[in-house]
Design a protein around this nucleic acid. Structure first.
Length: 461
DNA sequence: TGAAATGTTGGGGCG
DNA sequence: ACGCCCCAACATTTC
């Protein structure tokens, strides 16, 4: 029996799936396949791996309700696919194109000997399509986003997977259910579509104002779903287009435009990784490849464990450890603190984020870290140093975020919540929070570190 | 998608 | 009424 393979990688959905659609269009029976690749298994942290496995479980359920089966195999993709091709009459392998250096290399090798066809879907516009007039890729966000927006491409009505997907009955799958559920994110495309619907009904209209507030629930919380393709970028952009057709107030429009812009940032960093795969290993900007980092192991541990003595930093780091997710504003604050205040190589932070984030994505995470560390695609940003106290007062005004994640500070009044080390000793006694004992004293003096960092960056450039 | 330092302006108090 | 000072508020420059 002639058959085709739908090779699932980071597109764990049935609807609006370009690879599945291509497979369905052949009219041949399909083998829906996910390969657990040992080469990738060692890198993801537990949170992300659990989310992936729960997503596979969901996909398996979604498929079996259509009378089909998801085949899950473990091993080298090349070997597994070659074996399938040898044992079944596989006419074609369809997969959604991925742009990490590992994925590109893997797919190139497989395509040399097997009938692999890659489809577009991870980014809305393929990296090759967004270039300057001289043919070079964009390296600055604003011109990139202008070019991106000017392309005459609009999101299309998401493709609905057929009620019955014809699968190849000759190959059986084992049920897959070994995972720990995330406390915050249910996996699966149903959950993703629900969240997208809720967000675009309501929160998106206040997104511009509330997305930065760490004490509010103002962000989309869609990143894990976009990361694993439980939601496609086309589905997200189509949802935006639909609400843009309504009569929106000025401020509502701004909320929508701000989220739209965030999605273009995602495209931008996928592009950067595609054209400059070396960013995985080094700073995008050659001037900042030789910064003399201090790399204090003690400071790095304090940062990881949320014990720096800076409440907003510690709250954020504990949120990450507890939930596998961190608010976007918090990510910038802790990243600035690690690279600019502690003068620790941003790559240490990048790795810790990848080990812990449920939505950890090489392109976005790397881009974000390089941006904050000031070594990336921005023009002259080395002096962009966040002041954790100001950030805290601005974006967690009542200290609710801090109180939520740092129980030992939860009793403090607003007056001291951002800056507990300024608390007089009588108050420390009164609130049962002795600085240096119940909660750490600040591990660095910001007045000194600011200058230290400016010097180190200046020297490197 | 930063913050601090420095510069400018303009209104009110006051001799 | 006038000029001077003070200072808050805002704008610009600098790192």
């Amino acid at each position: 029996m002639k058959t085709v393979v739908w090779w699932i990688r980071r597109d764990l959905r049935l609807n609006d799936n370009t690879a599945l659609k291509s497979a369905v269009n052949t009219g041949l029976p399909i083998i829906p396949l996910f390969i657990i690749d040992p080469a990738l298994k060692k890198s993801p942290g537990h949170t992300r791996q659990n989310f992936l496995y729960e997503g596979l479980h969901c996909l398996q359920k979604d498929l079996s309700s259509r009378g089909n089966a998801l085949v899950i195999k473990e091993g080298s993709p090349l070997n597994i696919l070659a074996e399938l091709v040898a044992n079944y009459e596989v006419q074609m392998i369809f997969a959604e194109e991925d742009f990490t250096p590992y994925a590109i290399k893997r797919d190139d090798r497989i395509a040399q000997s097997l009938p692999l066809t890659l489809t577009s879907g991870l980014t809305f516009i393929h990296p090759g399509q967004v270039r300057k007039s001289d043919g070079n890729p964009y390296t600055i966000f604003t011109p990139f986003s202008k070019a991106w927006k000017s392309l005459p491409i609009t999101a299309s009505e998401p493709w609905k997977a057929p009620i019955n997907i014809l699968t190849n009955p000759a190959i059986k799958s084992n049920p897959f259910s070994t995972y720990t559920k995330s406390s915050l994110f249910n996996a699966g495309e149903y959950e993703a579509s629900q969240r997208l619907f809720q967000f675009t009904q309501d929160k998106i209209y206040n997104y511009k104002e509330e997305r930065d507030r760490m004490d509010l629930d103002g962000t989309s919380t869609l990143s894990p779903y976009l990361r694993f393709g439980m939601l496609s970028i086309n589905q997200a952009l189509f949802a935006i287009q639909k609400i843009q057709n309504r009569n929106l107030s000025n401020s509502q429009e701004q909320g929508v435009a701000t989220w739209f812009n965030e999605l273009i940032w995602r495209e931008f960093y996928q592009n950067i990784l595609y054209y400059f795969p070396n960013v995985k290993k080094e700073a995008f900007n050659p001037k900042y490849r030789n910064i003399e980092w201090l790399n204090s192991a003690e400071h790095l541990n304090a940062w990881k464990n949320g014990q720096t003595g800076f409440p907003i930093v510690d709250a954020a780091m504990r949120q990450l450890s507890s939930t596998g997710w961190m608010h976007n504003r918090s990510r910038m604050i802790v990243a600035s603190f690690l690279s600019k205040d502690l003068l620790i190589n941003w790559q240490e932070g990048e790795r810790w984020f990848m080990d812990n984030l449920i939505d950890g994505d090489l392109a976005a995470n790397n881009g974000g870290w390089q941006w904050t560390a000031g070594v990336g695609t921005d023009a002259a940003p080395y002096f962009r140093i966040f002041n954790p106290y100001l950030q805290s007062e601005k974006f967690d005004p009542q200290g609710e975020y801090i109180r939520k994640w740092i129980p030992e500070l939860s009793i403090l009044p607003n007056e001291y919540i951002h800056h507990p080390d300024l608390m007089p000793s009588a108050e420390q006694l009164y609130y049962g929070c002795k600085i240096g004992k119940d909660y750490p004293a600040p591990i660095i003096n910001r007045k000194e570190t600011r200058q230290r960092t400016l010097d180190a960056y200046k020297k490197a450039s």
